[in-house]
């Protein structure tokens, strides 16, 4: 965290790969090639990649693709995946209908129920 990261460091040119069209983020339909290109556009953190491409911003919130994207970005940058901090986790843990999120039960009921 907060290590100085010089974005002018040479990571070499973007070289197209044979598997660039493979889907990585299924929810948002982002391919491996798009992720690799984004790195060469300067998106060097998981957070930047996510904001730039929407990877991990779909219904599963990156549950499936986060590790996959990370491995691709790390390889492109020539670093270990562990050096890349995962993107932030955000409420809600599971998608929730607006009508339900808006409905605070506390005033209506005394205690937790199992919802059945």
């Amino acid at each position: 965290m907060n290590a100085v990261n010089d974005r002018s460091r040479d990571i070499g040119p973007f070289i197209p790969g044979t598997d660039d069209d493979i889907l990585i983020c299924r929810c948002e339909e982002i391919t491996k090639g798009e992720i690799r290109k984004a790195v060469h556009d300067g998106m060097w953190t998981m957070t930047e990649i996510r904001r730039y491409l929407r990877t991990g911003m779909g219904l599963c919130q990156g549950q499936t693709c986060a590790k996959l994207v990370k491995a691709i970005v790390a390889k492109e940058l020539g670093i270990s995946p562990a050096e890349l901090e995962p993107a932030t986790s955000r409420v809600p843990m599971r998608p929730i209908e607006m009508r339900i999120f808006a409905n605070e039960l506390a005033d209506k009921k005394e205690d937790g129920q199992d919802g059945k």
Partner: peptide
């Protein structure tokens, strides 16, 4: 929902 009743079923995926 007061402005847009039609959005009641839309799922929230992130808050920040």
């Amino acid at each position: 929902m007061k402005y847009f009743p039609d959005l009641a079923e839309a799922k929230i995926v992130r808050t920040w």
